[in-house]
């Protein structure tokens, strides 16, 4: 009973944490500025536009968050670590790219995984491909933000433009190992 209450309180404090209040303060200031400089009709139009956009977003965001939550329980990080840590070569770069794109969560989730690979002697190129894929074509970001906000067409154009880049970055990073320090284990450099 007490634990449940504490859990509820911590969830509430996370919902209304610093990011929420920072954005709330910014939008309040911007709203007052808009009211003063452009008049109340503009404020009303902006708010109505945002309500429309938000109604459009809710079913998509809820779906995206459920996907992110479910992927985390279906694909445990240990399994992910095994795939990238063991492989190298061009195939390793491809695997790292796919796994990086599938890794959900923010940097507080993905960088601990990267460190785990690094310590177990994963190839530097694969690590760079992984980070690039996670940040550039991350599936979770794509589902929650890109697809709903930019629309399927623009999202498709972007994926077509950049999907191959993690492999390129990994390939270049591998060449750079000539002058940067080798990873902590011998088999990391090739």
């Amino acid at each position: 009973m007490n634990a449940l209450k504490r859990k509820k309180a911590s969830l509430l404090s996370e919902i209304f944490g610093v990011p929420f209040w920072v954005f709330a303060a910014i939008s309040l200031v911007m709203g007052v500025l808009t009211w003063q400089l452009r008049g109340p009709a503009t404020v009303e139009a902006a708010v109505m536009g945002d309500i429309d956009l938000f109604l459009f977003l809710v079913p998509r965001m809820l779906g995206g968050m459920l996907i992110a939550g479910l992927v985390q329980v279906v694909l445990p990080p240990e399994v992910v670590a095994k795939w990238v840590g063991a492989e190298s070569g061009f195939r390793g770069l491809l695997i790292a790219t796919v796994v990086g794109a599938l890794t959900p969560g923010g940097p507080m989730t993905s960088f601990p995984i990267v460190v785990a690979f690094y310590m177990s002697g994963a190839d530097r190129g694969a690590l760079v491909a992984y980070i690039t894929a996670w940040s550039l074509i991350g599936f979770q970001r794509f589902m929650i933000w890109e697809l709903p906000l930019l629309g399927p067409e623009v999202a498709l154009y972007r994926v077509l433009s950049v999907f191959w880049m993690p492999v390129l970055a990994g390939f270049i990073a591998r060449r750079l190992t000539i002058w940067t320090a080798p990873p902590p284990s011998e088999e990391g450099t090739r």
């Binding site: 954005f23 503009t42 902006a46 945002d50 939550g69 479910l70 992927v71």
Partner: peptide, 29 residues
Amino acid sequence: GLRRGFEMFLINGPRVVVALLAAGFLSYF
């Protein structure tokens, strides 16, 4: 998995509302 997803939605939903509001006003400036 479902609980994690719902929690993420509860945490991010209100943030997105205020972020979109700020961006909406920003687009006029």
